[in-house]
């Protein structure tokens, strides 16, 4: 503990200590000032945003019990004495729900695979170290468009085009994944060592062959890792696609919400949670293996 006024004058050590202490004090003053200014601006922005976004403590206070009540209604009555029957009643639609969940996973899987394939094709011209500027610009614009439009909006369009059902969901996920993955893939390619690429060119290989033999082997672990991460995300995305009629468990969930079948909501959400968690764990383990194996080889 030291009061600055005392410290600056009375510390032993002469000129060097005094000068350093002065500099330190100046810096602290500067930091305190900027902390105050930025803090005030932050609070102001928060206040303005809440005002415009109609966030009010009163409404929050009034609404919270309602939310709690809603959640309370979805909790099924489970008695210890008749646990078996109660569970059976709660999960009355298990067979259909599991099938719908499998549907959801398949929509996510097919969508991810198709999207990743398209992303791979577009990622090479989108890599700024590998392709001419015009190609980079053009392919990046296409990827941006594909990932700016939310999956749900694509799903709405495709339901209109292809009719109700999983096809619309698969297309929507594929298109959005193409945009999201294409950008990440291109960034992985940009980190590739260019020397092998030059060697393929010097051997008379075409640009495509240089990408296939010079870049792809280097990028592959990165691509796999990002692809698995996207699959995780897509399983979650696919679970709500049913709301617009694009297949999967979402439609059933939406129906029970609309029909106020409260215990069904919790049953479906629980199954969904279990599925998403399982996929997340599986993908994380696979990603660790891909990356871990890579580190082992590099060592």
């Amino acid at each position: 503990m030291s009061t600055p006024a005392l410290a600056a004058g009375a510390l032993p050590g002469g000129e060097a200590v005094r000068a350093a202490e002065q500099a330190w004090l100046r810096r602290r003053r500067g930091r305190r000032l900027s902390f105050t200014v930025w803090g005030a601006l932050f609070l102001l922005a928060l206040g303005a945003a809440s005002e415009i976004g109609e966030v009010s403590l009163a409404r929050l206070a009034a609404g919270l019990p309602m939310a709690a009540d809603y959640i309370g209604r979805t909790i099924p009555t489970l008695r210890w004495a008749s646990l078996g029957e109660d569970l059976a009643e709660w999960m009355w639609g298990l067979d259909a729900w599991v099938l719908l969940l499998l549907d959801t996973i398949l929509i996510a899987y097919t969508g991810t695979v198709l999207g990743a394939a398209a992303a791979l094709l577009l990622s090479f011209p989108a890599a700024s170290t590998l392709a001419p500027r015009w190609a980079v610009g053009a392919s990046r614009r296409v990827l941006e468009l594909a990932r700016t439009v939310p999956t749900l909006v694509f799903a709405l369009i495709f339901v209109y085009a292809f009719g109700l059902g999983p096809l619309a969901g698969v297309m929507a996920i594929a298109l959005h994944s193409m945009g999201a993955l294409g950008k990440l893939f291109a960034e992985v390619h940009e980190n590739a060592d260019l020397r092998p690429v030059e060697a393929v060119r010097a051997a008379g290989g075409s640009w495509g062959e240089a990408m296939r033999f010079g870049v792809l082997p280097q990028s592959l672990p990165g691509l796999l890792s990002f692809g698995l991460l996207r699959f995780e995300i897509n399983v979650r995305e696919a679970s709500v696609l049913g709301i617009v009629g694009a297949g999967g468990i979402g439609e059933e969930l939406y129906l029970s919400v609309r029909q106020f079948s409260y215990p069904d909501i919790s049953a479906i959400l629980l199954l969904l949670l279990a599925t998403v968690t399982a996929i997340d764990l599986l993908c994380a383990a696979l990603r660790r293996r891909v990356i871990g194996a890579e580190n082992l080889r590099a060592a």
Binding site: D193, R195, P196, A199, P217, Q218
Partner: peptide, 10 residues
């Protein structure tokens, strides 16, 4: 090439 320029992972 000086650095051989092989594709290390192939």
């Amino acid at each position: 090439f000086q650095q051989f320029n092989l594709v290390q992972r192939l």
